[in-house]
Amino acid sequence: MPHVQVSEKQQISLWNILKNDITLTLPFRHWDLVESIAPEINSWTWQIKFNTALETARYVILAFQSNRNLITADSSVFDKINISNLKVYLNSSKFPEENFAVDFDMKNTAQAFEMYANFQSLYYGDSSVRRGNPLMNRTEFQNCPIFFIDCSHQDETLKSSVVDMKIEIETKEAFA
């Protein structure tokens, strides 16, 4: 866990806030980890859960692993599966709107890599320091993909109702 150290000038300012018992508002981001075992088929619809409007997903991050039963297996490395299409549905709203055109065999991963590379600036805001600085380059991404789906641009109906989330995944080969 990284620690933050402030300068002496900021320490005095923070001590004054504490001494005067001033209420501080802290933004909160909610994270959910949902794991599942994919059936050995090419097309899978994964029903995640029902969300209330307060917990509507803004981003969905998908990564796949197989054969991680051994203790010695590296759980930080994700497996390349031959995804051909990927959709996230929040009720009837589809993300991304266009078809997910990906072919890992032909190295046609531009759309998936762009979504991955843009996630950092989308999540943290429009900061020029973080823009275009993904952790993996395109070659590393093709061998160890992590899929990021931006669901932050939602209809008003999603903000005022119960939200049903499902993910549709199509692959060229059956899941291992």
Rank of each mutant, 00 (worst) to 15 (best):
P2V: 05
P2W: 08
P2T: 14
Q5G: 08
V6W: 03
E8L: 05
E8I: 10
E8V: 04
K9F: 13
K9R: 15
Q11Y: 07
Q11H: 05
Q11K: 15
I12M: 09
N16Y: 02
N16A: 06
L18S: 07
K19T: 15
K19V: 09
N20V: 04
N20K: 14
D21S: 13
T23H: 00
T25Y: 06
T25M: 05
L26F: 11
F28V: 14
R29N: 09
R29Y: 09
R29T: 14
H30K: 11
L33R: 14
L33N: 13
S36F: 00
S36V: 09
E40D: 07
I41V: 13
W44L: 08
W44I: 01
T45C: 06
Q47F: 06
F50R: 13
F50Y: 14
F50M: 12
F50T: 13
N51V: 04
T52R: 10
L54R: 13
L54Y: 11
L54W: 07
E55N: 12
T56M: 03
V60G: 02
V60Q: 03
V60P: 03
A63Q: 11
N67D: 13
R68A: 01
N69S: 13
T72R: 08
A73R: 11
S76E: 11
F78H: 07
F78W: 12
F78G: 00
N82E: 15
I83S: 07
S84V: 09
L86N: 02
Y89A: 12
L90A: 05
K94A: 03
F95K: 07
F100D: 02
A101Q: 14
D105P: 02
T109F: 01
T109M: 05
Q111S: 05
Q111E: 09
Q111C: 02
F113V: 05
F113A: 04
E114K: 13
Y116P: 01
Y116H: 06
Q120A: 12
Q120H: 00
S121Y: 08
L122S: 15
Y123D: 05
G125D: 04
S127N: 11
R130S: 12
R130F: 12
R130Y: 08
R131S: 11
R131D: 03
M136F: 05
N137R: 03
E140I: 07
Q142A: 14
N143E: 07
F147G: 04
F147W: 10
F148C: 10
F148S: 03
I149A: 04
S152Y: 07
H153E: 13
H153R: 11
Q154P: 06
E156H: 10
S160H: 06
S160Y: 05
S161C: 09
V163N: 15
V163I: 14
D164T: 10
I167E: 01
E168N: 12
I169R: 01
E170R: 04
T171E: 01
F175S: 08
A176V: 12
A176W: 05
